[in-house]
Design a protein around this nucleic acid. Structure first.
Length: 461
RNA sequence: GGCGACGUAGCCAAGUGGUAAGGCAAGGGUCUGCAAAACCCUCAUUCGUGGGUUCAAGUCCCACCGUCGCCUCCA
């Protein structure tokens, strides 16, 4: 399927038609630092890039998806020391947690998950090259990137060195030539994890790992580099500087920079970052609103807009997901004319083409759901339309399966039995008892619906 | 201080020149023993405020008010 997908590129600050360089779309998404569990803000980012990947694949592109894990960095070292464990143990624990958190969100797995500590030789080679071509220098075992050699420094984040210096937060650092220079390699203190290098024992700086790993696993230029807007500066700006300097500006580093807006908390209005201790764990949200609920919440607004986490919005999203689920999963009749999903699908795809307008795409999906429900009420056929709706929901990564609060398979015979007993009670007009059964089942997550064709039941999270 | 966003109904939110999508909530109705679900109807003459451009502006320009983000810990 040949579609024209437009994507907003942070570098050019406008939406551009997306085309890959080769047969395969090379997509690199910045992963988490492994010193604390992921929070809902991370979930938002991974949901956004999951939808981007799903849509590109839907459009017929083959996507090679790489996501790093940062497993060496100050926070990890500090946290590991505080807990009396090695950085390997700490990272391993959070990698496992990461996959446990992502599974219910229906996030497709990346093809490669490189880790900084496994890529030390590549990193060293890269730093060495940067020193050779004059873009980096060593000082007392540290290696810094020389910001002033790059005329384009600041092009991604739309700022220049002078205006950055106007801000008060740049620390000069005694070893740096220029306050804006950043660390490529950091000499280790006694007791810290360290690797041998031409500059002595040390460890990589934060930014260099992504340049090294994207080069190794995808090759430059990469088509899409994604992450949260908080990474634009300094992280991604520095990646651009070092990666393009590495090839002496022979190769652009990234063709499309894609950044999602950030999530913040309603009450405190504070961004949910872990250093503020103000985080909402993913599993807690999933338990209350379901994976689809969280996804709906994220996709109901544009990925570049900031969103505010609130119970009300999550509840609203959860209810919406339920509405779609019922529309798609409840059997309709077989009379003519069947529902024609084509115009809804068209609207859906047009919205997705337009810089991933998931809110617009969802609107079309909801309209289709109404058509399906209407047809069902009229006894008309909706099988194909339901299949189309499932396909559209699938592009958005919505599962539309019932939440697993009740072990459906195990409980089924017993629920059926209760439904049957309740039918008998209703026939005998024993409504007090039959209503009690319905109420009690609802409390444990089983919803009964009495219709003309008998009683249907479903589960609810 | 520098750079950049945003302000659309009770809440969330789409919509970048042609006369306001969608979801949630609310009210009325159909169906039902009662519910639930679903369907139908109602719910912004109006898009922070004031000017301007235009035949036409939520959409472009200017000013003002307000909210928020980034400025080397951050998805």
């Amino acid at each position: 399927m040949n579609r024209t997908v437009k994507l907003y590129n942070t570098m050019s600050r406008r939406a551009e038609e997306f085309t890959p360089t080769g047969d395969v779309v090379k997509m690199y998404v910045c992963g988490p630092n492994l010193y604390a569990p992921c929070h809902v803000g991370h979930a938002m980012s991974y949901i956004v890039f999951d939808v981007l990947r799903r849509y590109l694949e839907y459009c017929g592109f083959e996507v090679r998806h790489v996501q790093n894990f940062t497993d060496i960095e100050d926070n990890i070292i500090n946290r590991a020391q505080a807990q009396g464990v090695s950085i390997e143990e700490l990272s391993e624990q959070h990698v496992e947690q990461f996959f446990r958190d992502m599974a219910p969100l229906n996030i497709l797995k990346a093809h490669v998950y490189p880790r900084a500590t496994h890529e030390i030789p590549t990193i060293i080679e890269m730093v060495q090259r940067l020193i050779e071509n004059g873009h980096a220098y060593q000082a007392n075992g540290d290696v810094y990137f020389r910001v002033q050699t790059r005329t384009g420094y600041g092009k991604l984040s739309a700022r220049d060195l002078d205006s950055m210096l106007a801000g008060a937060r740049i620390e000069p650092g005694e070893n740096k030539e220029h306050p804006g220079d950043f660390t490529l390699w950091k000499a280790s203190k006694p007791g810290e994890p360290a690797w041998d290098s031409p500059w002595g024992k040390g460890r990589p700086g934060w930014h260099i790992e992504c340049s090294a790993m994207s080069l190794k696993y995808l090759g430059h230029p990469i088509d899409i580099h994604g992450g949260g807007q908080d990474l634009i500066f300094p992280h991604h700006e520095n990646e651009v500087a070092q990666s393009e300097s590495y090839s002496d500006d022979q190769k652009p580093f990234v063709r499309f920079w894609v950044h999602n807006g950030l999530m913040r908390l309603a009450e405190s209005e504070e961004k949910m970052t872990r250093h503020l201790g103000n985080l909402v764990p993913i599993n807690e949200v999933v338990q209350r609103y379901g994976g689809d609920g969280l996804r709906m919440f994220v996709l109901n607004s544009h990925y570049r807009s900031p969103i505010t986490f609130s119970e009300e919005s999550l509840e609203s999203a959860k209810r919406g997901a339920e509405r779609l689920r019922i529309a798609v999963n409840t059997a309709a009749g077989d009379a003519d004319p069947p529902v024609d999903a084509a115009p809804f699908k068209q609207r859906f795809l047009d919205a997705m083409d337009d810089d991933l307008n998931t809110a617009g795409a969802l609107a079309s999906l909801f309209d289709l759901a109404r058509e399906i429900n209407r047809a069902r009420d009229e006894g008309r056929s909706a099988d194909e339309a339901q299949a189309a709706a499932r396909e559209m929901a699938g592009v958005l990564g919505l599962t539309l399966v019932e939440p697993q609060r009740v072990d459906r398979a195990g409980a089924e015979p017993f629920i059926e039995l209760l439904v049957e007993l309740r039918e008998d009670l209703r026939c005998a007009k024993q409504y007090e008892l039959s209503d009690k059964l319905r109420v009690r089942l609802a409390e444990i997550g089983v919803i009964l619906e009495d219709g003309a064709a008998g009683t249907r039941w479903r589960t609810r999270g």
